[in-house]
Design a protein around this nucleic acid. Structure first.
Lengths: 215, 215
DNA sequence: ACCAATCCTGACCTTTCGGTCAAGACTTAT
DNA sequence: ATAAGTCTTGACCGAAAGGTCAGGATTGGT
């Protein structure tokens, strides 16, 4: 996303603010993903955004506040994508749809996934309450639905939470570990074809993984 | 680094050094896992190890050197566990064995997994060459073996690398995201029974996931 | 034109942290 | 006992980074 330099005279205040906030948030997401919260510096974020550091602090008074905004942004994206048209009536189609949506997110916003992962790994200091409220509320009905599928014999007996964790793990791996995957791919980023294959393989493994055995 | 001449009878000094180095390395693994390389402070590591900071720098001159020692330690453990008795002749048993070994590692050394993950996510600044040499060399023959299985119809057709990534993703998830899992488990760490169930579920999903359909 | 509100920024302040140092304490060999 | 080698540590230093501020620039309304 880029911001065409607008003629000086026609910049409206609210556009200036919106424009700058967006640039800062995008730069921040990059830098936080690369360096972690502690390793990221406001000076670097400002440089990436093309503004002086003091100007960054005019829009986001502290690094922590900026970081929280980035996290909020990630959260919103994830929740929106999580349920897009998910048809929870049909197990295989529902799972396929959810997995594909999450794989696409890993492809398009790997930085968000990395920031999220780092936050969790370091004890989730800033999002504990989100985990135990919003995410927990999201999880509970899904667990129940999956349990129904199991009771109805539509899928294998597994712990429903473990199935969801498996999907998260598999899909986010392609974002969080993209550098490792790249190195093991002759130092080339996965091509669109390779990523499509990965998506197919992940779907196949999960779907076959929980598909009832035809005795 | 000076090479002290072979200590003749100074077993005691040797013990002191060994002892302190071990304590420091253990404390360092904890702190690096909790805070990341940049977020970790030598002062905190020293406090955890129960020694003054200056003493830590007597044994490990710089934070980066200490970090590299921790990484080496993790690597050695992982490689040792990776192939323990793996029987690559029988796909299902080989996969089961490897998955279970990796799950056990996630349980016993979650901090190692977290440090590894954080290192990769931040671009693997310190282990790039390891990835492209040792890990790549480890991966290549496994890929070939899996390809043989596929050609022989012993498992489904998937990209062999994607199968391995899937195993890594699923098993390490229980280490890297343990805090998230804990919060979603009523803020209780997974009990031994729950973890055993997770292990079973992961094995089942992967094995069923690549088991050929009985057509 | 003028004033208020908003935006911009170089210079500066303060804290933190990795790393150093010099002096002292302990262990071992002779 | 003494000397040599090793370990311990409080005090200190310089660099880096988060954050502040005063004052200038730009915009918007009247």
């Amino acid at each position: 996303m880029e911001f065409p330099r607008r003629p000086v005279g026609s910049a409206h205040k609210h556009e200036i603010r919106k424009n700058n906030e967006t640039r800062i948030l995008e730069a921040a997401e990059e830098v936080f993903a690369e360096a972690g919260f502690k390793g990221a510096t406001t000076a670097l974020i400002a440089r990436r955004a093309g503004i002086p550091k003091a100007n960054l602090h005019y829009y986001f008074s502290t690094k922590e506040i900026l970081y929280r905004h980035v996290l909020d942004d990630i959260l919103r994206t994830w929740l929106e994508a999580a349920d897009l048209g998910a048809d929870w009536e049909n197990p295989m189609e529902a799972l396929r749809h959810y997995i594909e949506a999450k794989m696409d997110l890993s492809r398009t916003r790997p930085n968000g996934s990395k920031i999220w992962a780092a936050e969790i790994m370091h004890g989730a200091p800033m999002i504990q309450d989100y985990l135990s409220t919003t995410l927990n509320d999201w999880l509970r009905p899904r667990v129940e639905i999956i349990q129904c599928w199991i009771d109805a014999g539509l899928i294998c007996a597994v712990n429903p939470k473990n199935l969801i964790y498996s999907i998260w793990a598999l899909t986010q791996h392609y974002a969080d570990f993209s550098e490792q995957i790249q190195v093991l791919n002759d130092c080339q980023p996965l091509s669109d074809e390779q990523f499509a294959q990965a998506k197919k393989d992940v779907v196949q493994i999960i779907l076959n993984g929980v598909m009832p055995h035809s005795t």
